[in-house]
Simulated scan of single mutants.
Amino acid sequence: MSSSFDKFQKRKLISSYFSVVLSIALVLFLLGLLGLLVINANKVANHFREQVTVTIYLKDTAKDIEIKQLEKSLAIADYVKSTNYVSKEQAAEILKAENGEDFMQFLGFNPLQNSIDINLKADFVTSEKLEEISKDALSKNFVAEVSYDNDLVNLMNDNVRKISFWVLLLSGIFTLIAVLLINSSIRLSVYSKRFTIKTMQMVGATKRFIRWPFILNSIKLGIIGAIIALIGMGFVLYYIDKTFPELTLLTNQVYLIALFAGVFLLGILITWFSTFLATQRFLNLKTDQLY
């Protein structure tokens, strides 16, 4: 009978530990993913900003030396990320591939213009800077037109500001929820041993002596949960980097190491603090209050 009861208690204890570890791992995993989002939010936003293309259309009378000088001046400009010269023949081939038909057969000539596509660095993708670039290019007599989507730029910048605000707000809220959830799991684990705590106290054990094994055990569970969460974060980070290599998520190694270390330490600190509070509460209860 005693053996069966011991086995039951052992299974119950293992189940309790498993639920605590799982809770810690899931919460820290989600918190870590949110941390990854916060760290890379600016990089993702910059990636999309740098996809905005400014197209400078050139007149047919433009000389090769003028075009090359314009390309060279744009290439060395501090606000330009990349430039690409597109001849009218290349533009015709691109349009033909997109539409699936050769429009030149109907027109009998190529109405398109030679052009230079510019991609700006993220910090310079603003309406003011685009307007400045446009005016500078149009001041040259061989430039026919400058084209870019100003509405898209304004919409993108507005959305980036809004998303940044909500990401920071959600980070704070989710961190609080994470602490509360882990604290709840730890308290339930300690609650199941409240009679053991009171018995030890009644035979003369000090609060520090009683509290330490619980804290040490919870820290071990926190470490296990944090390691599981970090493994999950590593898999997600690897998958995203392979799927979207242009985001170069793995280049911010200092931030990533800091985030992983932060998640690991958070798992230890939350479990330590929660266990301290939970054991302190039961240590201060009277015997009749345990029921």
Rank of each mutant, 00 (worst) to 15 (best):
Q105Y: 10
L181E: 09
L70M: 13
I224M: 10
I94N: 15
Y79K: 08
L36M: 13
L265F: 15
G222C: 06
L155A: 10
P111I: 11
S127K: 12
L249V: 01
T243A: 14
L249D: 06
Q201F: 04
I24L: 12
N141S: 14
L70K: 01
M233K: 03
K63A: 13
S218D: 07
V254I: 12
E50F: 09
I228F: 09
I14P: 04
A229D: 12
L28W: 09
Q9S: 10
L256H: 09
F174S: 10
I118M: 00
S184I: 04
L107Q: 04
I182S: 07
V44I: 11
I197D: 00
N141W: 09
V179G: 00
K88A: 10
N42V: 13
A45M: 06
T243M: 13
L249C: 04
T53E: 14
I240Q: 06
E66D: 15
F276T: 11
A261E: 12
I94K: 15
L152H: 04
T83Y: 10
V20W: 02
V52Y: 04
E93Q: 12
S164E: 15
Q51N: 03
L170F: 15
D60H: 00
S19K: 03
W166P: 05
I231M: 14
T271R: 00
G225R: 07
M1W: 07
L37K: 05
L259G: 10
T287S: 11
L28C: 08
N252L: 14
L290Q: 02
K72Y: 09
S189Y: 10
N99Q: 14
L181F: 07
V125N: 08
K121R: 06
T248R: 14
Y238A: 14
T55D: 02
L237D: 07
I24N: 09
K140R: 14
G100K: 06
S274V: 06
V52E: 07
L180V: 09
L13A: 14
I116G: 10
V27A: 05
R211T: 01
S2R: 07
N252P: 13
S3Y: 12
I219L: 09
F103W: 09
I270M: 03
D149V: 07
M233Y: 07
V190M: 11
R187M: 03
N114E: 01
I240R: 02
S4Y: 14
D123K: 06
L37N: 03
L33E: 04
K129C: 00
D288W: 12
P213N: 11
I173K: 03
F142T: 10
L152D: 00
G32C: 10
T248V: 13
S218K: 05
